[in-house]
């Protein structure tokens, strides 16, 4: 990959991290506040998802319609809703509810050198390596 493209990927990553921090998704109290439907419910995560899904979905529609044919874009895969997906998503949800971190915010909090992230991220890496070792890296 050319240096210019890599620089733009650095920018994309930067925007992503900036978005996570500005939105408050790096604050576990805000994430758990959203997940706690019967507590003092915090709607912030819904606003984040709505904004991100709308921009990404519309952007992909526009790109597919107007971008050059040389641009290869991933499509909505026809991968099945199988046992692997259901069990994996459930285990992820369990961990997300326990810690209030999903992968993006966990990595972002490394940028604040927070003890929670410094512990969570290596544990997450071990979990990933185990899943990939026993079930393959690609579903």
């Amino acid at each position: 990959m050319k240096a210019g493209k890599l620089f733009l990927l650095l920018v994309a990553g930067g925007l992503f991290g900036c978005g996570l921090a500005i939105s408050g998704m790096t604050d576990p109290a805000r994430v758990i506040g959203f997940l706690d439907l019967l507590g003092a419910w915090d709607p912030a995560l819904l606003f984040v998802m709505a904004g991100a899904v709308a921009v990404y979905g519309l952007g992909m529609l526009v790109l597919r319609r107007f971008a050059s044919r040389n641009l290869k874009l991933p499509t909505a895969s026809s991968s099945p809703i199988d046992r692997r997906l259901v069990i994996g998503a459930a285990i992820f949800g369990l961990g997300w509810g326990l810690g209030g971190f999903c992968p993006g915010p966990a990595l972002a909090n490394l940028g604040g050198l927070r003890a929670e992230a410094l512990l969570f991220v290596p544990a997450m890496a071990i979990g990933m390596l185990l899943a990939q070792r026993f079930f393959g890296a690609d579903s």
Binding site: E116, F120, M124, M128, L130
Partner: peptide, 30 residues
């Protein structure tokens, strides 16, 4: 703003589950 909610030992267990589950299930919140 960062308001810790869980003890560190719970964060470590949560990390393991999030890593394992996301790679098994083929994706996370993003």
């Amino acid at each position: 703003i960062f308001r810790p909610m869980r003890p560190l030992v719970v964060m470590a267990i949560a990390g393991l589950l999030v890593g394992f589950g996301t790679r098994l299930g083929g994706g996370c919140t993003s």
